[in-house]
Computed example of a mutant assay.
Amino acid sequence: MGRTRKGRDISGWVIVDKPAGLTSTAVVNKIRWAFDAKKAGHAGTLDPEATGLLAVALGEATKTIPYITDATKAYEFTVNFGAATNTDDAEGEVIKTSDLRPDDAQIVEALQEFLGEIMQVPPQFSAVKIDGQRAYKLARAGEEMQIAARPLWVEELLLSDRPSADQAVLEMTCGKGGYVRSIARDLGEVLGCYGHVAQLRRLWSGPFDLEHAVSLEQIEPFAKTSEIDQFLRPLEEGLTDLLQGTTNAEGAAKLRNGNPAICFTAAEYGDEIWVSHEGKAQAIGRYKSGEIHPTRVILQE
C-alpha cells in the first residue's frame, strides 16, 4: 500500500510575492508547511534571483494549474548592456563584452523585432530537456548544446526607464513559455552590444496580480494556525479565463463520479468550460448538447 500523505484537505490559491534567493519549489514547500496542506504546486517557475508573483495551488487547485501556466503573463526586467553571460543573467560568467551602448531610439526600434509570434531559443541554463536531461545540468557539466527554438507570443514589449547608458528597464507581456533572459540576450545581439538580465520581477499571471500577493514574512507568523486561511484565495479564481456553467445537485453527484452531467451555460458545442454548483467548482470539461463531459473532476469539501 502507498503511504498516506499527511496534512489538511485544503484547496485554493496562495498568491506569493516571491523574494530573491529562493527557488520556486522552496517557496511552495514553505507554503505547504505553513498551511499544513496535503498537496501543493506552483503555476510557472521563477528563477531563484527573480522576484514577484508566484501562484501557489493547494489541494484540488493543483488540477487547475495548467490554466494559469498557459495564461498571459507580464514582467518588468532590467537589461545590463555591454556583456553577455553564459546564464544570460547577472549570476553567470561573462563570455563576451562590448563598449557600444545603444540610445533610447535604437532600443525602441530593436524591440519591434520581438513583438508578435517569435521564435526563441531558451538559455543554456534552463529546465529544457535535452535527450532526457535538463539543459542546466548539462551546462553545469561544461557541455555545449544546440537547443531548438520554440514559438513565443509577445503581446507587448516596452522601454519603461533608462537609469543609465548601461541599463534599460523593459516591460513585457507574453504567452506561455517565454524566457526573459533570452529576450535580454537576443536584444543585446540585435543592438550589437550584448546584454543580460540584471533584475526580473513578474507583475501578473492570468487572473492574479501583485496587488493581491502576500510575502512569506506576512504568512510565517500564522503558520500552522487557523488564522492562516485568511491568505487563501478560492480555487475558482484560477478558472476565470474559462467559460463557466452551472449544474444541479444531481449533476454534481454525477460529476464526482466522472460522469457527464446536465449543464447550464452560454458556451457552444465543444467549448472547454468549468461547472459549479452552489458556487463551488465541480469539474472542467467539454460542453456537448446540454452536458459537460468532464476531463478534470474537482473534489472540494
Rank of each mutant, 00 (worst) to 15 (best):
T265K: 05
Y179N: 06
K224L: 14
T85V: 06
A90L: 07
L138I: 08
T247C: 14
L235S: 00
P122V: 04
G52N: 06
I298F: 05
S160P: 00
A223N: 08
P123W: 02
E291S: 09
F125Y: 15
L115V: 02
K176D: 04
F35M: 00
Q218G: 06
Y67C: 03
F81W: 07
A213N: 10
R202D: 13
T4S: 11
G270C: 04
G195H: 02
G44A: 11
A266S: 12
D47A: 03
E156K: 15
R134T: 09
L203E: 11
L159W: 05
T69N: 08
A127T: 08
A57D: 10
A135L: 08
T295D: 13
G92F: 09
E220A: 14
D161R: 11
E93D: 14
K96T: 09
T173K: 15
R3I: 14
Y67F: 15
Q133D: 05
V14R: 00
F77M: 07
G44T: 06
T25S: 14
H212W: 00
P151S: 09
F222L: 14
V16I: 15
K38C: 13
T69F: 01
R286V: 13
N80L: 05
K137N: 13
I130A: 01
S160H: 06
W13G: 04
G41N: 07
R162I: 05
L46N: 11
P66F: 02
T25L: 09
E117G: 01
A71W: 01
A40H: 02
G7M: 05
N259K: 14
D271P: 13
V14G: 00
M119E: 14
A26V: 07
I65H: 02
E113N: 12
I31C: 05
V197R: 00
G245L: 01
A168W: 06
S11T: 03
